[in-house]
């Protein structure tokens, strides 16, 4: 059984590489039961969006 920490790693990985079907399955099952990790997933997606639009000031 994967912990929230394990799942948070996989969610972070999913921003950088495609997950294997086994990993995707583990994430999907976990997210059904865990709203904290579901939020983490949405929020790191948001971080990516923010970073993509960020323009450093001179």
């Amino acid at each position: 059984m994967k912990t929230c920490k394990d799942i948070s790693y996989l969610l972070s990985d999913s921003m950088d590489r495609p997950l294997t079907w086994r990993e995707r399955w583990a994430v999907r099952v976990h997210l059904l039961m865990c709203r904290h990790c579901s939020r983490f997933q949405q929020q790191i997606g948001f971080l990516s969006k923010v970073a993509g639009r960020y323009k450093p000031k001179d």
Binding site: C4, D6, H36, R39, Q42, Q43, F46
Partner: peptide, 10 residues
Amino acid sequence: GRWIGAPGAW
């Protein structure tokens, strides 16, 4: 491996 500071709703 459980959240201590669990993500809140944004």
